Simulated scan of single mutants.
Amino acid sequence: MIVPETQIRTAVQDDDAALAELDRTTWSTLHAVLPAPTPGEPFFDERHGPGDYLVAVRGGAVVGYVRVVPPAPIASMAHVRQIQGLAVAESARGKGVARALLRAAMDRAREQGAVRITLRVLAHNAPARALYASEGFVVEGVLPGEMFLDGKYVDDVLMGRSLLG
């Protein structure tokens, strides 16, 4: 359940430092496939700007984000959006922030004309998989041993759902 003081909004350039810090403090091989972000590294880059992110704000502080973008820049996939990252600060976990971000991402995708939304999640990330399943995402494929993290091969799970109805 979302706490009333949590607001979801589109990120702005001024969120860069807060999002970079959130990304560093929440980094874990439970969900991350890239190396840990380095201190001082900007969050936004030439491929993903503030408009690609929704942020959760509580008490004036950014406590979470979700990136929702087209999966590829081709016309035949214009009807699809993909979640490519979701993080919530430890202090805000268990308060419905991740669910609110996920629902806002689906709303944003619908507003952009998408009829389908997808994501990829590591198989060992049971809490995220449970959240996605509870919001109607289903497993549409598994790439066995696709990632090598912490000395182990980890399956990459593809999930998706319709945004119609």
Rank of each mutant, 00 (worst) to 15 (best):
G151S: 10
R120G: 13
F148N: 10
D150Q: 04
N125C: 08
A75F: 11
N125V: 08
A78P: 08
E90G: 08
L164C: 13
D107S: 09
H48W: 10
M147K: 10
A20T: 04
D16W: 04
P4Q: 10
S28C: 02
G151T: 09
D16K: 06
R81I: 06
G94N: 04
R116W: 09
D107Y: 08
A92G: 03
D14Q: 14
E146F: 13
A75I: 14
D16V: 09
L34H: 12
V115A: 12
A128Q: 00
M147Q: 11
S28Q: 00
K152V: 13
V55A: 04
A32I: 02
E135A: 12
A123I: 10
Y65I: 10
T118P: 06
R116H: 14
L163C: 02
R161Y: 07
A11G: 00
G51F: 10
L164R: 13
L22H: 01
G49M: 05
G96P: 00
V63L: 01
P144A: 09
L102Q: 04
I74Y: 11
V157E: 03
A87R: 15
Y65V: 12
P73K: 08
G64A: 06
T6C: 15
R110Q: 04
G59K: 10
M147C: 11
G51M: 13
G141I: 05
M77N: 14
N125K: 06
I2D: 07
A17G: 14
R47M: 15
Y53D: 00
V12S: 11
R99M: 09
V142N: 07
E111K: 12
A11P: 01
G40Q: 05
T29A: 05
G136M: 04
A128H: 05
G145D: 02
R161A: 03
R9I: 07
E41F: 08
V139Y: 00
K152M: 10
A75H: 10
P42H: 00
R99A: 15
P70G: 15
R103A: 12
P37D: 02
Q13V: 15
V88P: 03
H79K: 08
Y53T: 03
A123D: 08
R67M: 11
M159P: 01
V115Q: 11
D155A: 01
A123S: 13
Y65T: 11
F137E: 03
V3N: 13
A100V: 02
T26D: 01
E5K: 14
V69W: 07
V68W: 08
E41A: 15
A18P: 05
P144T: 03
P35K: 03
V88I: 04
L34K: 11
D52W: 11
L119N: 02
E5C: 09
R47F: 14
Y132P: 07
A18D: 02
G151L: 09
